[in-house]
Write a protein that binds this DNA or RNA. Structure first.
Length: 305
DNA sequence: TGGATACTACGTCATAAGAA
DNA sequence: TTCTTATGACGTAGTATCCA
């Protein structure tokens, strides 16, 4: 018979178990699990209730037909965020990385992702792209339908070189540009994609490859066909302008939400990866514990020849 | 080879949670 | 209180895999 008395099971300190052998000898055994860890699968009780509710509603939906989607949404949306769960886990358990906050992501921008400054104006081109003019003058282009890395592109204003008088060469860091594109920026200027890159200074063309160039010009008398001119904020009078402003706001909101959703999915993937690695660690620990148990059994019940 | 199914990524909507 | 952000849910499209 082996009696086991737990001690030192406080958080952060390795658990030392006092094992009393049949011979009266006591052995201090240090477990491989260093802290009492909550299960990664552990979730607030409400989540379990929700799962049950989902199954129930699904069944009832089959039998009764249509269910109240609002009610279901209300039930489903009570789940705490995975980031919160993981970060709480991280604060409890050493070794579980926290999901990075937005701040840290801004500090360390991935090389392929353009810096996203807070835009002051957002415009939509005739091809459906969004042009965000940041306060610093940076122009960002977002392609709807493309992913976050390729969809958000930064334009670098390069006034250096030898642009034509009154024109600013804009480097368009697009990975693919199909067709001629034209769009406007505030200040009654027009951004026009050059048909040939020859307009760009040769040193710039060499540095950017086949990158198309854009010029910001004073608008000509006639607007080019297919160009969507966004209304300047702050000068709205007619109902049509108000409607346009509302549309613009909606597009901006959608664009922000689109990016947020992408980011959210990225974090969720990260979260799932963390859980998976945690499971792997726990499985190893479990294995070790089983081995430890076998060893103790061998010690406690020596073979009688 | 073509249809069925599964998987993945995306965009949008609704809403909880937090910030201002 | 209002605004912004984060995220679950849902529908859709593209792609991969399986099977007759």
């Amino acid at each position: 018979m082996v009696s086991v008395a737990g001690s030192g099971t406080g958080r952060g300190s390795p658990a030392v178990t006092l094992v009393q052998l049949p011979s009266g000898q006591t052995v201090h055994v240090q477990g491989v699990i260093q802290t009492p860890q909550p299960s990664v699968i552990q979730s607030p009780q409400i989540q379990t209730v929700q799962v049950a509710t989902i199954a129930e509603t699904d069944e009832s939906a089959e039998s009764e037909g249509v269910i109240d989607s609002h009610k279901r949404r209300e039930i489903l949306s009570r789940r705490p965020s995975y980031r919160k769960i993981l970060n709480e886990l991280s604060s409890d358990v050493h070794g579980v990385p926290k999901i990075e906050e937005e701040k840290s992501e801004e500090e360390g921008t991935p090389p392929n992702i353009a810096t996203m400054a807070v835009p002051t104006s957002i415009y939509q081109t005739s091809t459906g792209q969004y042009i965000a003019i940041a306060q610093g003058g940076a122009i960002q282009i977002s392609n709807p339908g493309s992913d976050g890395v390729q969809g958000l592109q930064a334009l670098t204003m390069t006034n250096s070189g030898a642009p034509p008088p009154g024109a600013t060469i804009v480097q368009y860091a697009a990975q693919s540009a199909d067709g001629t594109q034209q769009f406007f920026v505030p200040g009654s200027q027009v951004v026009v994609q050059d048909e040939e890159t020859e307009l760009a200074p040769s040193h710039m063309a060499a540095a950017t490859g086949d990158m198309p160039t854009y010029q910001i010009r004073a608008p000509t008398t006639a607007l080019p066909q297919g160009v969507v001119m966004a209304a300047s904020p702050g000068s709205l009078h007619s109902p049509q302008q108000l409607a346009e402003e509302a549309t613009r706001k909606r597009e901006l909101r959608l664009m922000k939400n689109r990016e947020a959703a992408k980011e959210c999915r990225r974090r969720k993937k990260e979260y799932v990866k963390c859980l998976e690695s945690r499971v792997a660690v726990l499985e190893v620990q479990n294995k070790k514990l089983i081995e430890e148990l076998e060893t103790l059994k061998d010690i406690c019940s020596p073979k009688t020849d």
